[in-house]
Amino acid sequence: MTTQQKLHTRDLGIQPTNQSLFYLHFDCGSCNGCELELASLTSPLYDVERFGLDLVVTPYHADVIALTGVCTPELVEPMQRTLEAMPDPKRIITIGDCAHDGGIFKGTDCVAKRPLAIKDAIAAHVPGCPPPPHVIITALLKLESK
């Protein structure tokens, strides 16, 4: 086996699918930890593109928004506008404890009350601080097959 093939033996026991899911990243006030783990997904160790997962850079192309961070009051409006620009069905996956309910920041001023549009769109949550890449991939794949 070559080195590259050996790397691929470390996969997650998931068969490649014929479906796809394009995800967009939106930072709502995170510490850069979840960003690091999201950026890990494209590394050949995980190579999410073989599962049909692909990072896109505009909401027009996105199937799901990967939301990180506490959702600060200042970022609610940009978030809403990003969501509006997205085609239906609008879906959000919250990544990390902060994005779920504020985590360590829960109940403080920096965690804004989310508008209904954002609340309704949340389809899944990935727990962890920050969640390791294989947990994120498993959650994205679950969403992909829905």
Partner: peptide
């Protein structure tokens, strides 16, 4: 910005 193309902070 504030949202960028890619995995970057806001």
């Amino acid at each position: 910005g504030p949202n960028h193309a890619g995995i970057i902070e806001s």
